[in-house]
Design a protein around this nucleic acid. Structure first.
Lengths: 204, 204
DNA sequence: CGAAGACTTGAAATAGATCAAGCGTTGTGG
DNA sequence: CCACAACGCTTGATCTATTTCAAGTCTTCG
């Protein structure tokens, strides 16, 4: 089964059409730290992440805010390609990354031909919107301790454990490492979590 | 010409289909301060704002963040209706407001039947995404004075004039009225803008 | 083992919010 | 048509959360 099938957008596409898409796909790889696309680039297609992690972020005046972190298999850059113009943000490889590139002409052709795909794309964009509204809520309404706590709850496994690297979490939450460190101290003091090495454990 | 025609989404729709939509529209009105929908409501349709202004916002722990302010004629709530589930945020009337409500079944039917409409809806959602990414950038990376200045540049007409109501701008930018007022003083002092009554004038 | 990087903790700095007071504008009811 | 109440705007004085700066400790791994 082709990897495109793992993408919700294309999961229901007919084999013949999938084949057509495969024919126009380009494959690229990037090393850690390399820029995959930036908000200064014209968006002439979408990227499908097949290996590695990618950080989507905005930067301005030396500061940086992470929008989201992508893991395989995900679609990236669709809003830019579908609106026309540039990408809304920058994407950087967090490790060795492999992507497939699909030109927007082919993408729009497929969408136009398949109402199901169109509806799925609409669903995906709506989901992205929800995610961003959540991010706005976090950034502007919640304080550092709540954000760190929410992060832990959100990422914890069944046993309430998370691997926790202060610096990384700080980036994801748009805080400094110092603030995250202090937040964890607070949460420990309040009996909300326990920390052993790099594992944070939720307490109930 | 029916008011639906002023909506980009429906501007190219055929008369017969427009008629069909009109038949299922419900009309509602709200007074200043009334909630039109909230993030606790199941989203079973979209709202078309035909009169008045509406604030879309998130709230948490007594604080509030405006996502955007709608003026006629705009579509509201589409991400909720198209994703399924609840609305992503709350909408409140800022003055006397009139809306049309279109059930999501009819909306999706129209989208499925018309690839043009589907592509337009995709474009609209992508635009919303850009707007939200911009909001995130503003909230986390820019200081109050830049945000107010950007707002003016963005909204200014050909002559560099904007109607400027401190309270409204404060809401849109997620700042307090006091901070916006101080920002304008700064910009005046720096010779960036002039203010006469409620009109702010960009200087070059 | 030792050096570089990651984490913690304290002290100072800062941006914006909040609190407070005064002033201008508007619009409504007498 | 006036009066005054309500609201919006401005400006000053605190207050507060988070960043920044600094120093010390811990980890890890070549």
């Amino acid at each position: 089964m082709h990897i495109l099938r793992s993408l919700p957008l294309f999961s229901t596409l007919e084999d013949s059409e999938l084949k057509e898409i495969e024919n126009v796909l380009m494959s690229y790889s990037y090393d850690k730290g390399q820029i995959i696309f930036s908000s200064y680039d014209g968006a002439n297609g979408i990227y499908i992440l097949t290996k590695g992690k990618v950080k989507l972020y905005k930067s301005f005046a030396g500061k940086e805010q992470t929008i989201r972190i992508f893991s395989p298999v995900s679609m990236m850059g669709e809003a830019g390609a579908l609106k026309g113009g540039n990408f809304p943000a920058n994407a950087v490889a967090l490790d060795k990354v492999q992507v497939l590139f699909l030109p927007k002409e082919k993408l729009t052709e497929v969408i136009r031909k398949n109402p199901d795909i169109a509806m799925k794309m609409i669903g995906i964009l709506s989901e992205r919107l929800f995610h961003l509204v959540g991010l706005v809520e976090n950034l502007s309404l919640k304080d550092a301790v709540s954000r760190v706590y929410d992060y832990i709850v959100h990422k914890a496994d069944q046993n309430g454990k998370v691997e926790f690297k202060t610096t990384i979490v700080a980036m994801e939450l748009g805080l400094t490492a110092e603030t995250v460190s202090r937040a964890i101290s607070q949460l420990k003091k309040r009996g909300k979590v326990k920390k052993e090495g790099k594992i944070v454990q939720l307490l109930y």
